[in-house]
Design a protein around this nucleic acid. Structure first.
Lengths: 356, 356
DNA sequence: CTGAAAGCGCTAACAG
DNA sequence: CTGTTAGCGCTTTCAG
């Protein structure tokens, strides 16, 4: 493994010159630079990350703090990670994913106080996220993916839930739907103050009001069973509902299953629109889900760019940015049946159609 | 940020004593150790990772090389990652996930030759995986998750596909099924030599032969559409099939959707068993999928333990280990209808049942 | 524009 | 059992 000494010797310059050629921290004559670069190439030189980090007090490592629950990473999160990794790599930084949630504060504290991280991206941010306090206390720059309750002095990028919900409701209303039910995350999740659940709830209420419609939200556990229960509740409360907006990738599958079991066809009897969903997941359902596609990789890129600005200049400008999801119409949404269709009639028709 | 000097001064010992107290690389009297520990606690001391890494030529970082395709991380992979992270953390190492696939060789080369990684775990290993060559050349210890074609001199942990397939087929045969079709990954994936697809194919052939049954394998694209197409093909080739074994989490959803669309009920008309599937995903389907649960977190733990052995002693013993998946019966498998039931009759009965 | 040299904070001989 | 000290490989003043 060649060192900078070796390069300097071969190029017949001093080590500092090699260093400056590498970092560009001070001007170098073209002739010298060429000599140095040639020597580096010949020796297949790669700077030692630890030595560099020790001397410069910069690890060139950015952490992506990524709580991993048993559910895994959806395609949405993956797109985010991929976008972030590409942006970091382009800037000469390494992005390391650390499965650190709000429960692993000690681990985070260790990682940060060992000066391993030049900066951190927090995913799955909670309204009161203790990781923020830990990182601030240790002086590690950070950018949130999502938002805490109080975002003063914090940079973040997040989905524009308000606009996304408005677009989804607009799509359904344009199709002619009036009785639209919103299936959200669980009551516990709402009680915990999970931002996306709260923000979409409020956005749904506002969007429906804007169209002069009655908003009904039903919480659902993040599972197929939760979706089935939610559908039962929805049908009890609004027997003649014609559309469901869902913000719960797991529940939406149970919901579709239960709809089929009850003989309600999608989208003829009930339209379903899924929020913040990746194309890959939307295509898994039968029929494929009309969905609001999350801007995963753009979100990742912007987050890294913002973070690097903070890392490079300590007091960089705070950047708070929202990106909307784009509507992608697939098979699960369509115009409602004409008024007057009863539940019983619809069921009978569905059964008939199936036998045909 | 306190340094080791500060600790030494406060404890009235030399820096080397502090260092040895920290690493345990040489015996320390209890009294001295207590003094040092007290000083550390008082100063809230954390060793500087870069300095440590430079001096010891050990980064204490293990890389988990994890190609991220657009599909994301399933619950299976997540369990693996979580198990590995826990094991690494317990050993005082940091596990960093790097979204590096076989296409990002340059990035891997940089990471490794900058001496950032003490060792690496490779996921999604291909039969001829160039990452192995890069790491070996650079002297970075590695453990495979999966297997290359030639595994001499390589440690790996992998799923015991042979035993897993045998157990799945056994389950169906015990229920009374004879006409069992195997839905695998795509033809392209097979042609590329993707290990799990090839190994399960062969295991399926062997298992069926063991029961005196005819094996039929059908490749399917990794998507819902692929599953629908595969079902159509399967029914064309074996109109009276009673069971499907699937090794394709995406296709299995399309397959179930198509089965429902054709009025074949699961499991009454057709039993479905999904291989190497996590409980979370299995529960998403309606009915919930009988599945072979992958040993994700155990796999991760064992992989890390093996890797650390290689890191600690350069010429550690090669460890090649296979873990089986465990059968978990849910709603998608059951006894077949009695012989003689025609497709038409089954469809009619299904429709009737649904209206009841 | 270039060189010399003083560290960065820690580990690991080498001495006792 | 403990202390002294020479690096690890690089960055960054300070001089020229």
């Amino acid at each position: 493994m060649a060192t900078m000494q070796d390069v300097a010797r071969l190029a017949r310059v001093s080590v500092s010159t090699v260093s400056y050629a590498l970092t560009g921290a001070r001007p170098i004559s073209q002739a010298t630079r060429d000599k140095v670069l040639a020597a580096m190439a010949e020796l297949d030189y790669q700077p030692n990350a630890m030595a560099r980090g020790l001397a410069s007090r910069r690890s060139r490592i950015l952490g992506l703090l990524l709580p991993m629950d048993e559910r895994g990473l959806g395609a949405t999160e993956t797109a985010f990670v991929t976008g972030a990794a590409a942006a970091a790599s382009a800037a000469g930084y390494h992005l390391v994913l650390s499965p650190i949630g709000v429960g692993d504060l000690d681990q985070l504290r260790r990682l940060a106080s060992q000066r391993m991280l030049d900066g951190a991206l927090l995913m799955e941010v909670q309204l009161h996220d203790p990781r923020v306090d830990v990182l601030r206390e240790l002086g590690v720059p950070l950018v949130l993916i999502g938002r805490t309750a109080d975002t003063t002095g914090l940079s973040y990028v997040d989905i524009d839930f308000d606009q996304t919900v408005r677009a989804a409701v607009g799509h359904l209303v344009d199709l002619g739907h009036h009785r639209i039910v919103y299936v959200n995350h669980s009551a516990d999740t709402l009680a915990e103050g999970y931002g996306p659940a709260l923000r979409t709830r409020d956005a749904f209420t506002a969007a429906m009001a804007g169209h002069g419609l009655e908003p009904l939200m039903i919480p659902a556990e993040d599972s197929a069973a939760g979706g089935r229960t939610a559908l039962a509740t929805a049908l009890r409360r609004v027997p003649d509902l014609t559309a469901i907006l869902a913000m719960n990738e797991s529940a939406v599958f149970g919901l579709l299953g239960e709809l089929a079991a009850r003989g309600r066809s999608v989208p003829d009897d009930v339209s379903v629109v899924s929020m913040v969903t990746s194309p890959q997941v939307a295509e898994l359902a039968t029929p494929a889900l009309t969905a609001m596609n999350s801007p995963g990789s753009a979100l990742g890129r912007i987050a890294i760019e913002t973070l690097l600005r903070h890392v490079d200049v300590g007091d960089a400008q705070i950047n708070q940015q929202l990106l909307p999801c784009a509507l992608e119409v697939r098979g699960s949404s369509g115009p409602p049946r004409t008024e007057g269709t009863t539940t019983e009639a619809a069921r009978r028709r569905a059964a008939t159609r199936r036998r045909a």
